[in-house]
């Protein structure tokens, strides 16, 4: 026996300890495997015997998002990865009465049940972990788009068409990259409006930072004498809106808004008075 044998025994012991089970009625057992996911869950599989066939199924857990990872079935990249695993492990699928997809494998040979467990556990682990990769931040995209549309629609209802520009820059040459959500121009006086939103606190904070930067540049530009209002319109119904945690960031915005509280979306009616 060489000096590493004890470590090897401990490895086997620890791995073995990761297996556990639960009875699910008289006819089914849940096998909690040592295979895990990057969402920090262990793969559970369900074993039953019907007639002469052993069935190992995921019990619909992948499809019902029990592993806290959402499979985006519109994402072609992710689907390619999932189909690759499905083919490789030769996984079958069926749908239950609630429309939930079950992934499974079958065998008539009892000694091959471990093979099924091995294939299906690997498959579920890889699918769940692949689905947690942020291939596209769709939620954030949707959040920004929805708020932009709502805010634009509101401004359209209170400002004449000729006086407003959306997603506009101060000018198309020197300040091309300094874009505001809306610029209102009345009698050669400017009001700059910046929408602030985010699907989580980090994105919300980044949105505040971008607004600050753009207002800073505008304040130091040749247009500064013509700017009457720098307005921040904060989406206070966004998931990322956490005023207590973001109080420092929000306070910085005040230096651009004559020390007034940035305007919240729920108080948007005040814009009518400001932009009169």
């Amino acid at each position: 026996m060489n000096k590493y044998h004890e470590i090897y025994e401990n490895i086997k012991f620890c791995f073995d300890q990761l297996w556990s089970f639960k009875y699910r009625g008289a006819e089914t057992i849940e096998i909690i495997t040592p295979y895990s996911t990057t969402s920090n869950k262990f793969v559970s599989l369900f074993l039953t015997k019907r007639d002469d066939k052993f069935i190992v199924s995921d019990g619909g857990l992948l499809n019902s998002e029990a592993y806290e990872s959402q499979v985006d079935y519109d994402n072609q990249y992710l689907l390619k990865i999932l189909y690759h695993y499905e083919n490789h492990y030769q996984i079958k699928t069926t749908t239950d009465k609630k429309g939930c997809k079950h992934y499974y494998k079958t065998t008539t040979s009892e000694i091959l049940v471990p093979n099924l467990i091995y294939d299906l556990a690997q498959f579920i682990s890889m699918c769940v972990s692949s689905a947690t990769v942020e291939l596209d931040d769709l939620k954030e995209k949707e959040e920004k788009e929805t708020f932009r549309k709502n805010a634009n629609a509101f401004l359209e209802s209170i400002i004449d068409k000729g006086d407003r520009k959306f997603r506009a820059s101060l000018d198309k040459e020197k300040y091309r990259t300094v874009r505001f959500s809306a610029i209102i121009e009345k009698r050669n006086r400017l009001s700059l409006i910046s929408y602030v939103t985010g699907s989580n606190i980090t994105n919300y904070s980044n949105s505040i930072a971008r607004t600050n930067l753009n207002f800073e540049i505008a304040s130091n530009s040749k247009y500064a004498p013509y700017i009457d209002n720098k307005i921040v319109l904060m989406n206070d119904s966004a998931d990322g809106y956490a005023p207590v945690l973001l109080s420092n960031q929000i306070n910085i915005l005040r230096q651009h808004t004559n020390n007034e509280e940035p305007l919240k979306w729920s108080e948007k009616e005040k814009l009518k008075e400001i932009l009169k």
């Binding site: 009875y23 009625g25 006819e27 089914t28 369900f46 069935i55 199924s57 619909g60």
Partner: peptide, 13 residues
Amino acid sequence: TDSFNPLNGVDYE
């Protein structure tokens, strides 16, 4: 309800 069994009522080939 019985003890929860996710395979109940599901058809497997």
